[in-house]
Design a protein around this nucleic acid. Structure first.
Lengths: 167, 167
DNA sequence: GCTATGTGCTTCAGATTCGAAGCAGTAACC
DNA sequence: GGTTACTGCTTCGAATCTGAAGCACATAGC
């Protein structure tokens, strides 16, 4: 019954725009650092980091794509590049012949560890420098709340490839 | 001298990852809505919105690029598309023959107003729904602080081709 | 004036992106 | 066993993005 305002008020707009600009600028800067330090794109770094973080050093393609908010075909492309560079290997999954298991190599870990310090540094300097300890905690809490909500909210056009017949 | 910790602690990592994921998911969803509602890409929308927000309905190309955190050449491309679609016009600046003044057209405003409600709706549902009023205020405050800091912080590899500093 | 340098924008080639379509393995059901 | 639907990934074409190079105007110094 309480249909919200048809527009965002000043406070909301401010928060929204700030979010967009902060993430854009952060990503932009990080991207540059990664390219300089290790010749990696942001996505490639995310992939390596995800794999390196895994106990087994492996993940299925689809899980990777979901974790990075990325298209399947785009992931195939990037994984191909990483494989060519020798930073990951791809092998058919043992449990499911359809699935591909991507695994980070030693060379991949090496690149990761070479790039990481600078990466951390950028985040610190750009994102956390102007915030007090409590601010960081608060920001993290708020964003985590939003993230949980987003994950639980199905995309408006759910069922892309689901039922094709009728209805 | 004061080289901070070589790594981010759990709280910081959490905040960082949450920020990235939230902005990615938000952008993804918004992008889809814009495409459905008005055939606009996110950048195109940002450009139109920026122009529509201006008192004169105009801006120079460079100002637009900066405001949207975008490459110059990419802006040229997008502006070309918008012009072809009749949503903006481009004309040489009167003060500086080098500059191009981009102006939103009535058709552009029309598209903007057609797309806006749905856009607002997505932001509300996805970003603000799980937050209380005070949370929104807090989030906006924190992000604004960070944004101001980022704007004031020159890119690490400052000045390839140096721009006129502020004023 | 005239030359050197700086700035605004575009062009270009190459890289990256996405969605749709396709291939192959899997699961459910009879 | 066979049929049908579903899922995981890749291929394909078209759209988009970027940095480097280039063109045109502007400004400073002489």
């Amino acid at each position: 019954m309480t249909d919200p305002q048809p527009h965002l008020d000043a406070v909301e707009l401010d928060a929204y725009f700030a979010l967009i600009e902060v993430s854009s600028l952060l990503r932009h800067t990080v991207e540059q650092q990664l390219k300089e330090a290790g010749g990696l794109s942001y996505v490639q770094f995310q992939l390596l980091a995800t794999l390196g973080d895994s106990p087994t050093g492996s993940h299925r393609m689809t899980d990777l794509a979901d974790g990075v908010v990325y298209s399947r075909s785009g992931l195939t492309y990037q994984a191909g590049l990483l494989e060519q560079a020798g930073l990951v290997t791809r092998a058919p999954s043992e449990e499911d012949e359809r699935g591909i298991t991507v695994t980070i190599t030693d060379a991949g870990r090496e690149v990761l560890s070479r790039v990481f310090p600078g990466h951390i540094d950028v985040i610190r300097q750009l994102l956390f420098a102007p915030l007090k300890r409590d601010d960081v905690t608060a920001l993290g809490g708020l964003l985590s709340t939003v993230r949980a909500h987003m994950r639980a909210t199905p995309p408006r056009s759910a069922a892309r490839r689901r039922r094709s017949a009728s209805s």
